[in-house]
Structures are given as C-alpha cells and as structure tokens.
Design a protein around this nucleic acid. Structure first.
Lengths: 218, 218
DNA sequence: TGTACATCAGTGAACGCGCGTTCACTGATGTAC
DNA sequence: TGTACATCAGTGAACGCGCGTTCACTGATGTAC
C-alpha cells in the first residue's frame, strides 16, 4: 500500500482515521469547540472537502471524538482501579475500588480538560430551543457510569451477604456520578480552577470520602 | 427625560442597562455562547458600535451577564430555603435548610439551563492554553457556595453544642457543591438530560439525601 | 497480458454567514460667559 | 436670557476573520472482458 511506503500519494489510504486523530488532538488542546473540520483537514494535509468523503460533516466528526474521549475516560478509571492495592476485608476492597474509580475519573478530567469536556459535549448546547420533535438516536451506554454502578452493586451484594452496610441502588450511582462530575467541572472551569495542586488533592480526597460514606445506609 | 416620554430619541438614556437586559435574555434562550454583542444591540434597536460606549467589548458584556446569572442562582436557593417548613428539632431544621438550598440550586439549573450555564461560563474555555502569565482579577465570592457553606457551618455549630453529628468543614462544602453542580449538569446537558420529569425528581431527592447523609460523621 | 471503463477519493475555487471591532462622522446635551 | 462651544452618545460603512459547505473537476484504482 502506497501510504505505508511513506510517499505522498493522491490517495491517502487511511484518511478517516487520520482525521479522527487530528480531531482528537484538537479536542485535547482546546475542548470540543476547538474541533474544527477545516483545521483537522489542514493538519492531515488534505483539502477540507476531502473530509466529506468520510464524514457527514463537522457534527459527525465531533461525535466520533466524543466516543473516543468517553472511552479514554473509562480507561483512566480502570487504570486507577487496577493500581489500587487490594484488601483482605472484601467490603474495604470494594470501597477502595469505588474510590479509586472516582479518583481516575477526576484525575482524567484534571489532566485532560479538553478531552473531558469533549466526552460530555452536546451537538446542541443546553438551553437551546429544539425546533422539531426530532427523533433522537439511541444514546449509547456511558461506560464511566457503568463502572461506578458495578462498583456500587458489588458493595450491595456484600451487604446482602451479611456485611454491615448497604447502598441504595440505582440512585447511589447517580449521586456518586454527580459528585465526581461536579467536582471535576468546578476544578476545571469552575470557581475552583485556581486551586493549587496540593489543596486540589485534599479537596478531591475528602469528596471521595463523602461519596463512600454516602453509600452507607443512615 | 426623553427616554421616559416614550418617544425614540437619539440618546437612549439607559443603554447600558438595556443592553444588559437583552444580553441576559439571550443567555436565557441559549446560554453564554448565545450572548452576542451585535444581537443585543439589534434587540435594543441600536447600532453595534453604540455598545462600545458602555462596554469594553463582548467580554465585558458576558462577564456582566455572568454576575447577574450567579445572583439569580443564589436567589433561587434562598427562595427554596424560605419555602421549606421549619422543624422543632434544630438539627432537623438545619438539615432541611441544607437540602432546600440544594433543591433550589438544581431547580434553577433545570428551569433556567441557559442562565445556569452562563453563571459558570469562562472567558477562555477550559483546556485552552493560556499564553501569558496574565494577571487574573480577583474572583468575586460565589454566593451560591457561601450559602451552602453557611448551612454546613450551622450544622457544625449544633454538633459542637451537643447534637450527635458533625460535618467536616470546609471540605464538606466542596463536596456538597460538587454533588449539586454535577447533578445539574448531568441533567442539563449530560447523559441524564432525557430523563422524564418524575424520574428526574426522584434522582434529585435521593442525591440530596446523600449530600445530607454525607455530612454526618462516619 | 492488455485495455476500456466505472468508480472511488481526492482537489481548488467559491459562496454565504455572522461575528467582533474600528473608523470617521454627526446629532444632542449641557455649561460658561 | 441668549449664544458659543466642548463633550457626550449615538450612526453607518467597512474590515478581516474563519467557519461549514457546495460545486464542478481530476487523478488513481480496480475490475470485466
């Protein structure tokens, strides 16, 4: 294949993927609003028109970036959980996993603010009137949420088998997600964005503690 | 004054306020990105250039809108707290006030998504490289956060005077704020935005319950 | 093995859009004498 | 009370920008015979 031989050819060979990479790079640098079709094409060294062979338009390119960003977020959570040391007490282990997942979540947001925002971007910003009834395509499952839910379910299962605590599912999942999502955005682009790194960590840890505490029954 | 007589005059008389009102209206309709200097001038019936007599440019107009939106958010919280019935038990009363404030917070976000987003908008989106050292003006206090903090402090004071619980301040403030902020954004422009109103209320209430539970010591 | 031809994947120029902002200006207002 | 004049608060035309998207096109590829 010519593309592999390294020479510039009229046919790119893998333009779709190249455009996606460029677009993910743009999102990394400046968030979803930085994902600009013309710029992605420019970076790949191709005319803007060429992108229309592979995407419906800017919207589809951005949706593709969003899928990638969501995947990277979930990967960050799983990596953080994998790093967490185990514990003999299964309840303690389950709680540690939950807070490690949360740490991975907030950590990704803080380290990759642009991608994090891209993971949650909307085609149409909130508070914009939707003109038509507009059939919405089915929303794909967000793995980040699934991971939190599974961690909470694990705690639930332990509780039912005799351990002295339980979570209130599925509401606890939303509550935990809210906490890490809100914390991420306050740190990223909210009033906490100027917090020095050390105080930021303290705030993260104490919020995670509240999440874990909050899963225990009153 | 000519403006009061109702006739169209060359001199508007109160153009600055008129532009702010128009801009707040735009934010209400479509969030911060809808706040467009030319459109605000158009709505007031004045040339775009005229706005420069009263604002440095679009940036200053948007910052003014943000101040208004933050004030409206805090007002919504206080109104919700005022509606909340009291309780004989002072601890119960303080907890009710806390969760009422939170309810007012999320309620404002859900009812006024555009303004809510405007209240937290940044001049430069997160994940955008800041070129210069750039002296930042001092961030004004966000009253929404102050209100939450005071409610938590009230709980704290009760605990010290003998009631059987306490909060961990000031971290609890950030945790509570994170929860309501995250919940708001998940409902507004996140994966929960299609939740029917009834399920939405259930999710809000259970998250608020977690916030209150989380303030209790383990 | 060679060749005609359909199809695919690019190009380059152009369109219209709306924005923020600047320029030189003019009409209205108020103040000093 | 009248008038000259400085100052204030608007106007209208224009600039440059970069975007998404469309158009008619052309070079490269692969396939049928």
């Amino acid at each position: 294949m010519a593309a592999i031989s390294g020479g510039k050819t009229y046919h790119h060979g893998d333009l779709r993927n190249a455009l996606i990479c460029a677009a993910v790079g743009l999102a990394t640098e400046g968030g979803p609003e930085r994902v600009v079709l013309r710029e992605a094409a420019r970076r790949v060294g191709v005319s803007p028109t060429a992108a229309y062979r592979h995407f419906d338009g800017r919207g589809e390119l951005l949706r593709t970036v969003r899928v990638h960003a969501q995947r990277m977020l979930a990967d960050s959570m799983e990596r953080a959980a994998a790093r967490e040391p185990g514990a003999d007490d299964p309840v303690l282990a389950a709680e540690r996993r939950l807070s490690a997942l949360c740490r991975g979540y907030v950590g990704f947001a803080v380290e990759q603010p642009g991608l994090y925002r891209a993971a949650f971007c909307l085609p149409r910003p909130a508070g914009t009137a939707v003109p038509a009834p507009e059939r919405q395509p089915h929303e794909p499952e967000v793995r980040a949420f699934t991971l939190l839910g599974e961690a909470l379910d694990a705690l639930d299962a332990l509780a039912r088998s005799g351990a002295p605590r339980r979570t209130v599912r599925p509401a606890a999942g939303v509550a935990a997600w809210s906490a890490v999502h809100g914390l991420s955005l306050l740190l990223l682009e909210g009033p906490l964005r100027r917090l020095p790194a050390q105080r930021r960590n303290a705030v993260v840890e104490s919020t995670l503690a509240m999440v874990v505490t909050g899963t225990r029954a009153p």
